[in-house]
């Protein structure tokens, strides 16, 4: 079964074609381009490239697997909306995978997984032998350091952990970004079971920046009155 993998929740614009065979999961092609500001431009050409390289026509795909974040909103939506329109147009299911899960899936022991949330914050969760131990959250690195103090975290992965290793007090290791194959692995059961398509709900974790206006300001400055 051929699956298209997409993730745009980190600066790594990710597209891959994975083959879920009886023997296991194999990547037929992948493109990972690190550019935090070009998700809208680079994702579609990356998809085109992996399909071509894998020799796969869109109608050959059985499912689309996409990272639902958490991640910076604008980039995150590029992947989700692409997955949504492709899934709808092809009449195949789409499945969401938490991007932190994909980043933490191959880790061993108790590990902090952190991506860059901008505004000097990180998206984070703690994983135990590759499985989520805490729900994904967004916080300042210093706050995360306190939150994980009692978790027995020895190592960290992800660009967010690399960037703020000192504040977090945990040494950061590879990978910096989620390996494409992990998305396919995490959704493999759903793909094989032909589970119903899922609503691709982004993990924003932050509310929109918007304030309701106070009472209207007078047009006249005080001195003019």
């Amino acid at each position: 079964m051929l699956v298209l993998v997409l993730d745009t929740a980190t600066p790594a614009i990710t597209a891959a074609v994975a083959d879920l065979g009886d023997g296991g999961i194999e990547l037929r092609a992948q493109r990972v381009t690190v550019d935090g500001r070009a998700h809208g431009e680079l994702l579609a050409p990356s998809i085109d490239a992996v399909l071509t390289e894998a020799g796969v026509k869109p109608f050959d795909l059985s499912a689309i697997v996409v990272g639902v974040g958490p991640g910076p909103f604008t980039g995150l939506r590029a992947g989700l909306v692409t997955a949504a329109t492709m899934s709808s147009a092809l009449g195949i299911p789409a499945y969401g995978v938490c991007t932190l899960d994909a980043l933490g899936a191959a880790t061993v022991g108790t590990v902090l997984v952190a991506t860059d949330a901008r505004r000097r914050e990180i998206y984070w969760a703690v994983y135990r032998d590759g499985l989520p131990g805490t729900p994904p959250k967004v916080a300042k690195p210093a706050e995360v350091a306190i939150a994980i103090a009692s978790e027995g975290v020895l190592r960290a992965v992800g660009e967010g952990a690399e960037k703020y290793a000192e504040l977090l007090g945990v040494s950061a290791e590879a990978p910096s970004f989620p390996p494409p194959i992990e998305f396919a692995r995490l959704a493999a059961d759903r793909v094989r079971a032909k589970a119903p398509s899922e609503p691709l709900t982004p993990l924003y974790l932050r509310r929109p920046d918007a304030v309701e206006p106070a009472t209207r300001k007078p047009a006249l400055a005080a001195g003019e009155r």
Partner: peptide, 19 residues
Amino acid sequence: AGALLVGVAGAKGLALATE
């Protein structure tokens, strides 16, 4: 910018799927 990008990426997804 953010609003435009949803339509642009979605349209590209449609174009890819339908060729």
